[in-house]
Design a binder for these strands. Structure first.
Lengths: 350, 350
DNA sequence: CTGTTAGCGCGTTCAG
DNA sequence: CTGAACGCGCTAACAG
């Protein structure tokens, strides 16, 4: 339970006690370091009582294996790289939580790097992971270079939330097109004919898919899309509020479909500022259900996704891939769920 | 920019290309490995043109230093341990974001472990960090054992959000007592005399401080505290809603002060379920301002804390400590800010 | 300024 | 079943 670390020990130049090594416990137990290694790692033959003695001495001396030495020798680390865009965003926080949980249960650790939606920072993160000799990386990709770099070095990559990698790799994504189609169809069926779409201007499959779903629903129901209603905002979104305002002023939509939780939040604020009543004056539907959407009045209709579970799946996929490098890439596509609430209703009469 | 990794290379048993080593680039450049090391690490004397040649060859071969080898040799890793309770909670997500940002800017990485409010998992995390030979750990502590274990092994610890460590260590906390005192005084000044307090039942300085602030405000204003109004809920909070319901039924408070964002969320739901109007029927004040508090109607009066900045400070403190192990522990206490909104008003007349 | 030597701690040969 | 020998990749010490 406790490890004593006897009082009169030498200190390393860095001021910390010299860590106990395999050699130490071997000496104490009267064996060689090799035997100690076999006993503690559980690999290889060791007589029952040698093992018992070694385990006891290790416990007693407070032995803690040196991960660096092990990684150097085995050329394989137990640390997995994870890069997400922004931990402060609840969506990425939940992905991270799911990943961490699954990795930890399998004896892996997670080195977490944020890229702030910058391709350069993502690449820097990838370089770091190469230095750490991680067996794999999970990322919500922002560019193509990072995963290409990793792949070139034989590091497994799992893409999460969106697919971007050029040599395709394992991925866990939502069926974004389906989610957007259902949300849009919901509004069309309520009678809306001018539905503004707020979507981030990227080449990510997430946004592309949501845009496609928006179009598909229109096509299915025989409604033409006015391209002026499609607002593609910058990923960093400085002028988002202004763009939303312009959409309202110029295009007079009767409903807005905001294709992620941040855009929904911005849209909600702009609508409130203008004292537009939901859903009487205008309807609002969001993507990625987060707690506030259920708490505001009226509550917000939204496409829910199993965020934490997506993180778990990505980690499982990576662990599988590490165990079996050969098999072809797998893409898991999870199902969204449309949660209808009070913010969506029939369009105003006039 | 790109690293070529010439096509006809041997593959390691794991199926990945054999990484380029210092020896490789030394051979190619016609120097010794030591010189290559000095050139690439920037430490030690190297002639200008030897350095130039080595840098070029390294670039050309796509050299990526092996962090494990370096850590093994230097007995000091560039990876820092971080343990938070739950990444899915926006509060911890923001702390993590601040930590990561600062560490990355200083060339460190963050290994993130969640403890799910379990002391055992926290200790397991600490053991992992010991194996990784991290120079320091930042944690939102749940028990005392983990940081004691780390300290015994000479690993620096910075506590974040609350202080718990027995041999005291660096810490970044909020002035919880002040925040709670201001919030409570605000309610008392509005005329409330029966203020229910929802606080987590821990021995953490955060909750203790908030409880103390609640009491201090009462004392200052000469109001006696009815201890029945103080509800200490379990950290995992299974029966939280029931406890809140009981408080309302039995004690008839005219206001509730919820001492963290999760408790505020629960209280808000319970109040709404009972169709109690804020602030006419009852007032609600939260601790830790999160986005939904500003979005609901009426918006929620809350004690705001600079969460991301607290993460940054903790990282800075740790980096400082790594550079200067000797100096006495530092505690940074940041100031909360009471944000008065619509959920707090005068108590009902009757 | 440079190369040689040695060792960080571990696991994996290979003989015995 | 065990121990001796070796090397993973890097850097610090030390001669030159």
């Amino acid at each position: 339970m406790i490890d004593p670390l006897p009082g009169d020990q030498e200190l390393t130049p860095l001021g910390r006690p010299r860590p106990v090594t395999l050699a130490d416990i071997a000496r104490e137990a009267g064996t060689s370091a090799s035997t100690a290694s076999r006993a503690l790692s559980g690999r290889g033959y060791v007589s029952a009582d040698a093992r018992a003695r070694l385990l006891e001495v290790a416990e007693q001396l407070g032995y803690v294996p040196n991960a660096s030495a092990r990684t150097l020798k085995q050329r394989q680390s137990s640390v997995v790289g994870v890069v997400v865009s922004d931990l402060g965003n609840q969506f990425y926080g939940r992905l991270g939580a799911g990943i961490e949980q699954t990795l930890r249960n399998s004896g892996y650790q997670m080195v977490l790097v944020a890229d702030n939606l910058s391709g350069a920072e993502e690449i820097a993160g990838a370089r770091t992971f190469l230095e750490l000799r991680v067996p794999g990386v999970i990322m919500t990709p922002v560019g193509r270079e990072a995963s290409a770099l990793l792949a070139r070095h034989g590091v497994h990559v799992v893409e999460l939330d969106r697919r971007l990698a050029d040599p395709p790799c394992d991925a866990v994504v939502l069926d974004n097109e389906l989610g957007a189609r259902e949300a849009t169809a919901h509004l069309l069926e309520l009678g809306h004919r001018r539905i503004g779409l707020l979507v981030v201007d990227t080449d990510w499959t997430s946004d592309i898919g949501r845009l496609r779903g928006y179009r598909a629903a229109h096509t299915e129901l025989g409604v033409a899309v006015d391209e002026q209603l499609v607002v593609r905002v910058a990923p960093t979104g400085q002028d988002t509020d202004a763009r939303i305002g312009a959409l309202l002023d110029v295009e007079a939509p009767t409903a807005i479909f905001a294709a992620n939780n941040l855009l929904a939040e911005r849209a909600w604020h702009v609508l409130r500022q203008r004292r537009l009543r939901l859903p009487d004056d205008i309807s609002l539907v969001g993507f990625d259900d987060v707690p506030w959407m259920e708490m505001v009045s009226p509550s917000i209709t939204a496409v829910a996704q199993p965020t934490t579970e997506m993180g778990r799946r990505a980690a499982r996929l990576l662990l599988r891939r590490i165990g079996d490098p050969g098999s072809p890439p797998v893409v898991e596509r999870l199902q969204p769920r449309l949660v209808v609430r009070g913010s969506s209703g029939a369009p105003p009469r006039n």
